[in-house]
């Protein structure tokens, strides 16, 4: 894997529609009302429904494998959560290789929304054995 430290991944922009929030929540079997019921979410102090963590983890993984290709092997995904990703926002994922070796690399990923960093994390990725 000839990946150099400093390589920047192409940006991924995801329009966070209510459908996106709800379909991903259901696909990850997370039925908390804040991820599908706007009235309940507002009642609980949120301005809208928002992405659940399993989806954020999935998006971070997808973002890196989109770049690394089908033969990539994801070893780990570590994320820190920040501002919520509400419906009608746009999630902008950016990434950069922070470590690289002959067998793989570490990509630092940041997902930004209007309110700031929704997620920052690291994905450790290698090749299929």
């Amino acid at each position: 894997m000839s990946v150099a430290v400093g390589i920047v991944l192409p940006e991924l922009r995801i329009p966070v529609t209510p459908t996106f929030v709800i379909s991903t929540a259901v696909a990850t079997r997370d039925f908390q009302d804040v991820h599908h019921d706007r009235d309940q979410a507002v009642r609980r102090g949120s301005k809208d429904i928002f992405l659940n963590i399993l989806t954020t983890t999935g998006l971070v993984q997808r973002y890196v494998t989109d770049w690394a290709g089908a033969t990539a092997m994801v070893h780990s995904v570590a994320i820190r959560l920040g501002a919520p990703c509400y419906a009608y926002d746009t999630l902008v994922l950016t990434g950069q290789v922070t470590q690289a070796s002959s067998t793989g690399c570490v990509v630092a990923v940041v997902g930004r929304v209007t309110g700031g960093d929704h997620v920052t994390g690291q994905v450790e990725v290698g090749r299929l054995p």
Binding site: D30, Q32, V34, H35, R44, G45, S46, F50, N52, I53, L54, L81, G82, A83, P84, G115, G116, D117
Partner: peptide, 12 residues
């Protein structure tokens, strides 16, 4: 709530 969800999202 159970794990893997958040009720009051915010920057911590």
């Amino acid at each position: 709530p159970a794990a893997a969800s958040e009720r009051v999202p915010a920057v911590v």
